[in-house]
Structures are given as C-alpha cells and as structure tokens.
C-alpha cells in the first residue's frame, strides 16, 4: 500500500510538470492556433538557464528561478518577433514546420553553451525524502506539486480576473472584435510567447529538480506532454491540467505495475504508454476531454 502511495505521488508530481508544459502549449495555441513544437526546446533552455544562474554564477536558487523565467520570457518575445510574426497568416503546416525548426536550433544552442552531460539545476532538495503518513516521499516531488499548483492558480487568476488576461482571451476568441476595442494582436501574441517561455522554465526546473538533472534528452520528456494536451483538449487550460495529471499517473503506474506484469511489452514501455493512450483517445474523442469540438464553416 505504501508503495502505491509513493507511486501515486511520483505520478502526480510528473503529471504536474506535464501540466505546466501543456499550459505553455495552450497559451500559444489559443492566441495563434498553432501547436508550438518549440515548447520542448524552451523547457530545456529554461532548465539550462537556471543551471547557469544557480550553479555556475552561484545565485541563490530562489532568486535564480524567477530571473531565469524573466530571461526566458525575453527569449519567447524575441522568437515571436523575429521568427513567428513574419509568418502570421501562412498555412498551419508551415507554422508547424517552423516551430520544429526552432526546437532543433534551441537544443543545439544548449549543446553549444552547456554540453552534453547531465548537469544539476542547483535546487536545494537533492535526494532528501520526508515521511508522509508512513511513506517515504521525495521532497522535490512535494515541491513540484506545490509549485505547480501555485503556478496554475496564478495562471487562472491572470486569465479570469485581470484586464490583461481578459484582453488575451478576447484576442484569441475574436481577433477583429478585439482589435476594434483597442487590443493589439501583436501585443497579445508577444505576451503569449513570453508567458510560454516563463512557464517552460518552471516546467524545466521541476523536470530536472532533485537528483534527475538536466541534459538535452529533457526535450523528449517535454514531447510526452503532447499526449497530455490531446487528452485534455488543445484549447483548454483545465484540460491541460487534467490531461497532464492523468498522463503522469499512467506513465508512472505503467512503469510500476504493467511492465513487471507483462515483460513482453519491453522494458521502457512506460515511455511510449502516453502515446498509446493518446492514439486511443483520438479514436474515441478527437477533441479531448475538455476541448471545444471543432466546427468548420466555409
């Protein structure tokens, strides 16, 4: 039983990080209608940036993370301005190919500055565990869940209660009507990318937190947030959270129970389980659990 609780917490922790990655996707999808494959690259870059500030430059971790978020928001803004704004109005598949190009460049930018080895992000938790109701739980997992919760709350508050958030929702819902009310679509797009960059940093830090560390493979982990997003629905923030948690749990529980029970599936089956779930979901409910059913008009 205590094993199960341990897996449950590990799963929720992993799932929260997926939710964070998904939030980055959702922000950009809602503003621009494009699935941003570069989000994985932003996650890796954000984690390395934190490593640079906290470990190499010796800035305290609690200061380094917000600083890295700020820098990554700048990177997001820059990407939007230089790469994506000239492409507004182009076919969707061209935009997707563009984000794919960006992710490959971002990854190698990381390789250029930080190399190929696993490095730590300088978090204070390390391998410490704490006794929670008779179960040994990683401290970093608890922090991950807590910080993700806080980030999600801030996200929802921003979109529900601030003028800025409402402007962003308006811009996404009907760009022309929003424009008529004095909301600049450029500003909305730029802001979306900045938020995506900042959220990616948090996701990257917690993916790398504890003993795991960050290397270039982190981008592949971020790719596994795609199934979570499909599960939740591309345009739904609530769905991103639910989908992320579900996929995180599925992945951890598959590794813990299904793979030992059915060794013929192969040792790393939990790594592809999210994709299997995703393909199943797409057959039954293409718009996901919370997404809007796509209506096409001429």
């Amino acid at each position: 039983m205590s094993d199960f609780v341990r897996f449950l917490i590990a799963g929720i922790s992993l799932g929260s990080v997926y939710s964070l990655v998904c939030l980055g996707f959702v922000v950009i999808y809602r503003a621009t209608g494009v699935v941003n494959f570069a989000q994985g690259g932003l996650v890796v870059l954000g984690a390395f940036m934190t490593h640079q500030l906290a470990v190499v430059n010796g800035i305290p971790f609690a200061v380094a993370v917000p600083l890295a978020m700020l820098i990554m928001a700048g990177v997001g803004l820059l990407l939007e301005r230089v790469v994506f704004r000239p492409m507004v109005g182009q076919p969707v598949f061209a935009m997707i190919l563009l984000t794919l190009g960006v992710v490959f460049v971002l990854e190698q930018v990381c390789a250029f500055f930080w190399g190929y080895d696993v490095v730590l992000v300088g978090d204070p938790w390390g391998v410490a565990t704490v006794d929670l109701l008779g179960t040994m739980v990683n401290v970093s997992d608890l922090w991950t869940i807590g910080a993700t919760g806080a980030a999600l709350a801030a996200f929802f508050a921003l979109f529900r209660f601030t003028t800025l958030g409402i402007a962003m929702r308006a811009g996404a819902a009907d760009p022309e009507a929003a424009l008529a009310h004095g909301i600049s679509p450029q500003a909305i797009h730029g802001l979306s990318w900045a938020i995506a960059g900042a959220v990616a940093t948090v996701a990257g830090v917690f993916l790398a937190a504890g003993p795991k560390g960050v290397d270039l493979g982190l981008g592949l982990v971020a790719f596994r947030a795609f199934p979570a997003m499909i599960l939740g629905g591309l345009d739904s923030a609530e769905g991103a959270v639910a989908g992320g948690l579900l996929i995180g749990l599925v992945e951890v529980l598959t590794a813990a129970y299904l793979v030992p029970a059915m060794p013929s599936l192969g040792a790393n089956f939990h790594v592809v389980m999210p994709y299997v779930v995703m393909i199943g979901i797409l057959v039954v409910r293409p718009h996901g659990l919370f997404g809007t059913i796509e209506v096409r008009r001429a």
């Binding site: 790469v83 000239p86 492409m87 182009q90 061209a94 190919l97 563009l98 794919l100 190009g101 960006v102 992710v103 490959f104 460049v105 990854e107 190698q108 930018v109 390789a111 250029f112 500055f113 930080w114 190399g115 190929y116 080895d117």
Partner: peptide, 26 residues
C-alpha cells in the same frame, strides 16, 4: 566535446537543419 563554446559536427548539422527550415520558410 560539447560545452564551453563548442559543439560536435552532429550537433552543428542538427542546428543547421533547423536554421535552414526557418530561413527558407521565412
């Protein structure tokens, strides 16, 4: 070896493919 301002040929190629995709699309 990567790190400290150097990348492998393989990395350079990956980056170039990305850059070429971006530059040509734009």
């Amino acid at each position: 070896q990567g790190g400290g301002g150097g990348i492998t040929v393989f990395s350079l190629n990956q980056a170039l493919f990305g850059i070429l995709i971006i530059v040509f699309l734009l």
